[in-house]
């Protein structure tokens, strides 16, 4: 499989001087298109920092990061924003939906913000995604009225809205009960298989990790396995 992204010698240091903390210590990682990988490691190992850098929300202190042939270290904020919108989707532990919007409005946000308006095409795709997530009867519900599992499924739909090549999921089931967690993971697996979307899932849950094709272990800021 072709490489979707590749990092080399990624270093991330927070603070300066005596209080400086080096979270990533020259991390090398390669993800192929269509992979579904679990990111494992103890708290403080650098998993979240790595996801944040891969998601272009933060720049490393040093090192190289390329995705789809783009040098994402050299890109400026505007270029990264556009790149993120088109190629990367996010699923957060606490869903992070926009509270004053409906499920459908949340899902189509990435497309609407890119096109400057909510198009009929975007609405149709948003509805399709919510139906696939088993939320056909919750499409126009305010997100405040949804359960935790439903909110997380809306978040997955939102991450897929722009058909990104990569979806980064940070503990996507960490805040869900077992049944909801399994439901979300089944959906993620199905999308990975059907659409070839690459998933990198940070998790502490061994069952979730086992459901992924590959397990990447991060410890002390390095990929150790």
């Amino acid at each position: 499989m072709s490489a979707l992204l590749e990092t080399s010698e990624l270093v991330k240091t927070f603070g300066a001087g005596d209080t400086a903390t080096r979270v990533l210590r020259g991390l090398n990682l390669r993800l192929s298109t269509g992979e579904m990988a679990a990111l494992l490691g103890p708290s403080g190992s650098g998993k979240s920092t790595l996801l944040t850098i891969l998601g272009t929300l933060m720049k490393p202190t040093s090192g190289r990061y390329q995705m789809l042939g783009h040098d994402l270290i050299a890109a400026d904020d505007r270029e990264l924003t556009v790149f993120r919108n088109r190629h990367i989707g996010f699923v957060f532990q606490f869903h992070n939906l926009l509270p004053d919007f409906t499920a459908l409005e949340n899902v189509i946000f990435p497309t609407a913000v890119r096109e400057g308006r909510e198009t009929a095409t975007a609405r149709a795709r948003g509805r399709d995604l919510l139906v696939r997530m088993g939320l056909a009867d919750r499409i126009d519900f305010p997100t405040a009225n949804l359960s935790g599992g439903q909110k997380q499924r809306v978040a997955v739909a939102r991450a897929l809205m722009n058909s990104p090549e990569l979806v980064l999921a940070d503990e996507p089931t960490g805040n869900l009960d077992r049944a909801s967690a399994l439901q979300v993971m089944e959906l993620i697996g199905q999308i990975n298989r059907d659409e070839g979307t690459t998933f990198l899932i940070s998790t502490h849950d061994e069952k979730i990790a086992a459901a992924c094709q590959r397990q990447i272990v991060v410890a002390d800021g390095l990929v150790t396995g």
């Binding site: 998601g55 929300l57 904020d77 505007r78 924003t81 556009v82 993120r84 919108n85 088109r86 996010f90 992070n96 939906l97 926009l98 509270p99 946000f109 990435p110 913000v113 890119r114 939102r158 722009n162």
Partner: peptide, 12 residues
Amino acid sequence: EIGIMRAMGAGR
């Protein structure tokens, strides 16, 4: 919410 919007690709 502003953070979420920025993460989803909303520019400054």
